[in-house]
Write a protein that binds this DNA or RNA. Structure first.
Lengths: 335, 335
DNA sequence: CTGTTAGCGCCTTCAG
DNA sequence: CTGAAGGCGCTAACAG
């Protein structure tokens, strides 16, 4: 395991010079020296020690990726999370940063990571609650929050126009002849995203004097736990003819539930999703959904973060990404 | 940002003592001192600098998770990868290690990570080729390979009994009355896993004097690219009545393809998957598949690795996990 | 263009 | 049970 000092000695130069060529400061070194040192580095198979580097610079190339969840929950079981985090990782590497991934709802742990590793920045995902007010580290490192509606001062935000998404769904269902529609959230209580989508949905329907009664909004996708309530609703002659789900993942499970009670989608009941995950285009039926561009969201998040890392006195940014309708098979035209 | 030295001064003790209480070496410190120091640490919000720690110890708490892929490919788009890596992360954290994730097919980069960060161990996923022979770092750090059939000396392996999986599929299809079956791989050329599953599949069928002709094995799941060949096959009166896919993900796409050409599954054609991902139980039709236990695989991989980190002169282990049949809806009984 | 000199924050003998 | 001292590998002024 060669060290910088050793290759300096071998080259007959100082460590400072070697450090310069390693870090691409070629203007401070003669061409020949650069070439010679690079040759030595290659030949010795020298790899800089990142810990030493971080220590000396008081900053690492790590970016914390924090996903709010129980630490022993595999959040990648949710395809949206997996897709998004995967896209973040790809974009981070392109910019020369390492992801430091943490699934947790313990902000003490988050702070340990951030401070302990001297991370260069942090990416928070999910609708965080006010726990965050106590996250002192945030004052010192650049960070961007995705899909968070809790307004922290001085922090960057990247999110969707969730209300517009809800409106798109409401409008579309209305246009397709539906007059009675229900809503299924991922976790209504904790998720501002769910709340906004519901607001938009009710808003669009409201313009046609239609309402979504509270008994028709399902706060979570645990259909088994709500089986009785759901089947009662489904059995009623003036029950909903369509369900708008806050995620494709939910829609898929809803469709499965419908099947289990002998109902067909979209034959008997229409279902709309949100996200437009890849799976939405191969499911049976293919999902009509409100699409977001997950890759773009990841790209924007990383770009914004890196920009703020490189220039610490940039002003906080808030970017709202648009969403759009993708019409497929899971919604039937009525009447 | 308090440092160890500062809290030592505040406590009126040496840095060595503080270091001991931080690392739980309580036997070398009096109870009162421990309590006092812990109080100071809490109050100062002191977080140890991990870079300094790694530097001094010449080892970090990182475990490299390497997935062979192009660096700008989001591998979590594949639900199997996402699920497995997510499970690894969860298990790693339980043991007090950090995941250092890298998607790449450039083993120079892998070596940079491993050496640069002084990782404590490495987890390799996928059927690696002989590139690995040149990975000198492997000689020095504990590692485990999952689903790899390339036998490196002195390295741990965790994988499935893929041949048995193929046999289970072949037997089942035969039992269900199928006499002509095809096979779809993820990436036959590069994947030993695919090859083994095919071997097992052919083996089981061969016992009944049935063969799977080469024209019936599809080396990848890019159905669009092979549309003509596939439809010709499907249109033929003595074409296959069933397809065994090397992954649930493939099966889902195949089913979609079948639909696009007006064929129903399992009405016209039966389809079997492999993996038993969560999605397999809510798809339409629900997938009959060869199940593996992904959580168990992750747990065993992490346990094995940690054991070898803690005791460097353990002997290499090779663990083969069993697979089993999960019967659902996508295979029809014939005749 | 290149060398010297201090640290960065922590761990780890070795004494006491 | 505690302290002193050296060093892990690299960077960053500041000289030259």
């Amino acid at each position: 395991m060669a060290t910088l000092k050793e290759i300096a000695r071998a080259a007959g130069v100082s460590t400072a010079t070697v450090s310069n060529v390693i870090n691409g400061n070629y203007k401070r070194v003669s061409e020949e020296t650069v070439a010679q040192i690079q040759a030595l580095i290659r030949q010795a198979g020298y790899v800089p020690n990142q810990a030493a580097r971080s220590l000396a610079q008081r900053e690492s190339r790590f970016i914390a990726i924090i996903v709010q969840a129980s630490p022993d929950e595999n959040i990648f079981l949710n395809p949206y999370n997996a897709t998004y985090v995967g896209a973040l990782i790809v974009n981070l590497y392109k910019k020369g940063y390492y992801p430091l991934i943490r699934f947790t709802d313990d902000f003490g742990a988050v702070e340990q990571d951030i401070r302990g590793w001297n991370v260069a920045g942090a990416l928070f995902n999910g609708s965080y609650s006010r726990y965050l007010e106590n996250l002192e580290s945030l004052a010192f490192i650049p960070s961007v929050f995705t899909d968070c509606y809790f307004d922290l001062p001085g922090v960057n935000h990247v999110r969707l126009d969730d209300e517009a998404g809800g409106r798109i769904a409401g409008d579309y269902l209305y246009r397709m002849g539906h007059r009675r529609a229900a809503f299924v959230a991922m976790a209504l209580e904790d998720s501002d995203v769910d709340k906004r989508r519901l607001v938009g949905f009710r808003d669009a329907l409201g313009r046609h004097d239609l309402t979504v009664p509270d008994q028709w909004v399902f706060p979570s996708a645990d259909f088994e736990a709500q089986r009785e309530r759901l089947t009662a609703l489904l059995g009623s002659p003036d029950g909903p003819t369509a369900f708008f789900c806050s995620a494709d993942q939910i829609a898929l499970h809803l469709i499965d539930f419908m099947r289990s009670v002998g109902l067909s989608v979209p034959g008997d009941i229409s279902v709309m999703g949100f996200d437009n995950l890849p799976i939405a285009s191969v499911s049976v039926p293919k999902l009509t959904t409100v699409a977001q561009d997950i890759d773009q969201k990841a790209l924007v998040s990383v770009d914004t973060l890196v920009r703020h890392i490189q220039n610490k006195d940039l002003t906080p940014e808030k970017v709202i990404l648009g969403v759009s309708l993708v019409e497929r098979e899971s919604v039937r035209r009525l009447g």
